[in-house]
Design a protein around this nucleic acid. Structure first.
Lengths: 113, 113
DNA sequence: GCTATAGTTAGCATCATGGCTAAGCATGAT
DNA sequence: ATCATGCTTAGCCATGATGCTAACTATAGC
């Protein structure tokens, strides 16, 4: 039960913050420099920088520095582990629900005898 | 850019922990009492209890107390907001990639003239 | 070279999180 | 009535997350 998916923890943690999600939404419209991202948040630059670090550490964004401007861009495939995990869980949960449903149906029939 | 989806933050935060995800996986096989959940984690009961509280606050599990045993069960539909958000993001990101692709293609053709 | 701009780094305050132990309470078994 | 079981509460400690200010670096423009 130790450390199975450090990735997933990083990803979920990065997504667990409204500010970071809003930054992602903003970036969905296209790459942007740090200050443009900071603007709408109402937060100070260093604070936004740290949010960006978290996003980058999770692999959700990539940044490149050109002159004195750092441009941030989304990494679209970064969400796939999350999606995969979600799909797995849904599969298992629904399979169980089916079994439970079957069981209940059978039990009900039994009782009806 | 204020508080849009407190739910999403709760959900993502609940999922951002390996222990909690493993508890969910365990619960996917069927409802279980608190002690049965605590066992595999190697953590103490109070600690597990708090993980369960987090999961319950996020709506991911539901618990009922029968006698002195509290039974925990998964809430299958709880993941749908996450799924929805993910789908939205993918849609936007991919749309943008398509536009970018179109642009690049066009630009390349232009250059080829 | 000087100045404004864009990030960056360092350091601090505060609160949340994740773990623990110890003690308490309610219920089931004897 | 007593005791074991299963959970719960209270409280502590260490660490990490989130915000800030202030000071620093590095580039662009003049």
């Amino acid at each position: 039960m130790a450390k199975h998916d450090p990735d997933l923890s990083l990803l979920f943690h990065a997504l667990a913050d409204e500010t970071r999600r809003s930054i992602l939404s903003r970036l969905a419209e296209g790459p942007a420099p740090v200050s443009k991202l900071a603007g709408p948040t109402g937060l100070r630059l260093p604070t936004v920088m740290r949010h960006l670090s978290v996003l980058e550490a999770a692999g959700l964004i990539a940044t490149t520095k050109d002159g004195r401007i750092r441009t941030c861009a989304i990494v679209p495939e970064a969400l796939s582990p999350v999606r995969t995990w979600l799909d797995e869980q849904r599969a298992i949960w629904e399979a169980r629900l089916d079994r439970l449903d079957t069981y209940v149906t059978k039990a009900t029939k039994e009782r009806a005898k």
